[in-house]
Simulated assay, not measured.
Amino acid sequence: MSIRLQLKKQRRANWIALLHASVIAGLLWNFFGPQAPFIFGAGLSLFAAGMLIFLMNRNPKQKYEQL
């Protein structure tokens, strides 16, 4: 696969993700006020940080020992 095709797919994925993020932020802004998208973003970032910490503390050998 050429680098141009990879970049084109990456740009398309970014565009789709940004479109969804903008729609969600706009809906939150309209229905709950201007602070809602920022609170939602803060909550998602805390959730992502928690998941990262949880997944990094897992023992990878534990997965293979159960098999």
Rank of each mutant, 00 (worst) to 15 (best):
M1H: 14
M1Y: 14
S2M: 11
S2Y: 11
S2E: 11
I3H: 13
R4P: 00
R4W: 09
L5D: 08
L5E: 11
Q6D: 03
L7A: 08
L7Q: 15
K8S: 01
K9P: 00
R11D: 01
R12Q: 10
R12L: 06
N14S: 06
N14M: 11
I16A: 06
A17G: 02
A17F: 09
L18H: 14
L19Q: 10
L19Y: 09
H20Y: 10
H20Q: 10
A21Q: 15
A21S: 13
A21D: 12
A21P: 00
S22D: 08
I24F: 13
I24E: 14
G26N: 07
L27W: 12
L28P: 00
L28I: 07
W29D: 01
F31K: 15
F32Y: 14
G33R: 14
P34A: 04
P34Q: 09
Q35K: 13
P37N: 08
F38W: 14
F40W: 10
A42M: 09
A42S: 05
S45P: 01
S45L: 05
L46F: 07
F47K: 15
F47Y: 15
A49V: 07
G50L: 04
M51L: 13
M51H: 10
L52Y: 15
L52F: 12
I53M: 09
I53Q: 08
I53S: 04
I53D: 03
M56F: 11
N59D: 08
P60Y: 09
P60V: 04
K63V: 06
K63Y: 12
K63R: 15
Y64I: 08
Y64P: 02
E65G: 03
E65H: 14
E65S: 09
Q66P: 02
Q66I: 07
Q66C: 01
L67F: 11
L67M: 11
